[in-house]
Design a protein around this nucleic acid. Structure first.
Lengths: 147, 147
DNA sequence: GCTGAAAAGTCCTATAT
DNA sequence: ATATAGGACTTTTCAGC
């Protein structure tokens, strides 16, 4: 799929505000609305635009601590763990990484007590290393060209 | 801010598809469009809804390798690093974590050669540990209630 | 805080270049 | 592959409950 300058401009705007009106996109890129709609459709069909999401700020709902947890899964527990982890509400991401049988988890909890509770539930499946997020310098960047 | 069952339903739908029409939200939750619009506005104002994003699938653009990199920043380089890292196109997230002066980076590259190139650019600022993403079991979950 | 109707605005489809 | 224009639909505004 070819992404020209105009498509990058459209992608940039949709990444920054996915609820932007077609009309405003059209004005910005200097094309008509139907043309922009068609370009978006093609990028959706090609999977370049994967989805449109509202981002919920969990800290505003009382989940003040962000955490990353690595877990070295106990031998033979991988399948059971992968099924289990999708049911844990505190965990928003789970990536299987190279190196030392590691899973990387991202989660949010209310307070240290809540974190301890989460750790206990996870520790069944392997050895944990827990780190608090002190500050997110960047989270969810807008891509606006090839690199 | 109070999130009742109806607001959770709205939040769920907007997380799953942020371009959903107000009309469809209204039908789904059994309220009129103006009421739904008002509820959304209040959640935006309270910051519970932080933003609306289109998610770009970088693998469809040729960036096939996902990576997580931890970097133990060299003494005194933190400020310079934080400024620098926002200018690196391959890196989409940067979190400062507790423990061993660690920054956690998430990135995407075309191939191993591209990864080596990225590592060389980052290694100026500290010691790296690089892991490839083998599989993302979960990435960007939909929250639909308190936990 | 919610509704319903009317006004304003946006989007879609067809037609044309 | 893009533009224009009309009709259809959606969103917003506002009076009333």
């Amino acid at each position: 799929m070819k992404i020209d300058d105009i498509n990058w401009k459209i992608l940039k705007m949709l990444q920054e505000n996915s609820r932007v009106a077609l009309k405003d996109l059209a004005i910005e890129v200097g094309l008509s609305s139907p043309t922009v709609a068609e370009r978006i459709q093609k990028m959706e069909d090609a999977g370049v635009i994967a989805s449109y999401h509202a981002k919920v700020d969990l800290s505003k709902l009382g989940y003040l601590l962000g955490v990353y947890i690595t877990i070295k899964i106990r031998f033979g527990q991988t399948e059971r763990f992968e099924e289990f982890i999708t049911t844990v509400p505190e965990i928003s991401e789970c990536h299987k990484l190279t190196g030392r049988d590691c899973m990387l988890l991202r989660g949010s909890v209310r307070d240290p007590k809540h974190l301890e509770d989460l750790n206990i539930r996870l520790a069944v499946y392997g050895e944990l290393t827990t780190s608090l997020v002190l500050n997110s310098i960047m989270d969810g960047k807008t891509y606006d060209s090839h690199f």
